[in-house]
């Protein structure tokens, strides 16, 4: 068993995803407490560019696990590759992003290795020699503290945007090693027929620092264009509460809440959202909440840092214009 802290790197188009950098930053801090090194594990095909970029973000060692069967992503191939590496190197702690990929393969790895696993970690600390995570539970009506048992490999699946991306240290380099994965095509049973990109001009929800979100108050699908324009001006992502999804105005991948995504951006701008508990379950972890609503009694105002009682159809376009101007000056 080593004292090393591993991060399994998620990447796209030759670059690590933001969540992976967030985890490297946290791994750096935890490794200093635990007295180990930070190891980045990069599964994929043709991953040398990704591997090269990780030293500047805090990795001491980078394992490039290059194999044709690791592209595109499948749970089968990733679970085998990651399990083989963890079995061989026995790190004390492994950080995985809570993403569609991470949530898919990490439990398989834990089951295969008999490792401890805690998902949806909103914090991860070493306290009195124990590894302790907190996580939202019961649809965010409570926060649970979970303690990992000592000994063995421990896998923490960490929520996006709870740790900040460490600044790149130019000139800091990691030792890059190749990791030979033993994989054959029989072991990859799932076939990826296609990965359809949803073309949006706005940022993905789980990576956004700012989220502009719309509710029933938007009145119709066409009015989401107002939010798109505002989000573009802000460099933000667009989300929704449940009613617009149930009414078919936007697709389910917009939905934030108990039956949708959990987000924790720097700023959440709620437009025409009343603030039902089911919605709060997905967004009350935002650092700042700004709400625009016609109804001064809307529950969202009870947790908004800035509450605007007014007509979003009048305010949002003016806000978009004001932000364009503010950014233009900057």
């Amino acid at each position: 068993m080593s004292k090393d802290v591993w991060v399994i790197i998620e990447h796209q188009d030759g670059a690590p995803k933001k969540i992976s950098l967030e985890l490297l930053g946290r791994a750096r801090e935890l490794a200093e407490t635990l007295g180990g090194t930070v190891v980045a594990f990069v599964p994929g095909a043709g991953v040398s560019n990704v591997a090269e970029s990780l030293g500047s973000r805090g990795a001491d060692i980078v394992y490039a696990a290059d194999h044709a069967l690791l592209q595109p992503y499948t749970a089968d191939a990733y679970a085998q590759a990651v399990s083989q590496a963890l079995q061989a190197e026995q790190p004390t702690l492994v950080l995985v992003g809570s993403t569609a990929q991470g949530r898919d393969y990490a439990p398989r790895v834990a089951a295969r290795l008999g490792a401890g696993i805690v998902t949806d970690c909103a914090s991860l600390e070493v306290a009195d020699g124990h590894l302790v995570a907190t996580r939202p539970m019961y649809t965010r009506k409570t926060i649970g503290t979970v303690v990992f048992s000592s000994g063995g490999i421990r896998i923490a699946v960490v929520l996006p945007a709870v740790y900040s991306v460490p600044p790149a240290e130019a000139g800091r380099r990691a030792e890059i090693r190749a990791f030979q994965v033993a994989l054959d095509s029989k072991g990859v049973r799932t076939q990826v027929r296609e990965v359809r990109a949803i073309q949006r001009e706005t940022v993905p929800l789980t990576e956004a620092d700012v989220i502009v979100s719309g509710g029933r108050g938007l009145k119709g699908p066409e009015n989401f264009a107002l939010l798109d324009a505002l989000a573009k001006a802000l460099g933000a992502a667009v989300g929704s509460s449940r009613p617009p999804v149930d009414s078919g105005w936007v697709s389910h991948d917009y939905e934030i809440g108990q039956t949708g995504k959990t987000v924790s951006p720097q700023v959440y701008l709620a437009c025409g959202i009343s603030g039902a508990p089911q919605h709060l379950a997905g967004m009350s972890g935002a650092k700042y909440i700004v709400a625009i609503n016609k109804d001064s009694n809307a529950p969202i105002f009870q947790l908004a840092d800035l509450g605007i009682v007014g007509d979003l159809f009048e305010i949002v376009p003016k806000l978009t214009e004001a932000i364009r101007q503010a950014k233009g000056r900057a």
């Binding site: 490792a115 926060i143 503290t145 979970v146 800035l306 605007i308 007014g310």
Partner: peptide
């Protein structure tokens, strides 16, 4: 079990901020 829930607390209370009309 390789992990155990040791404590459950309510989420931090958010204070309503400024309201502007």
């Amino acid at each position: 079990a390789k992990s155990a829930l040791t404590r459950l607390v309510p989420p931090p209370k958010r204070q309503a901020g400024r309201m502007i009309e």
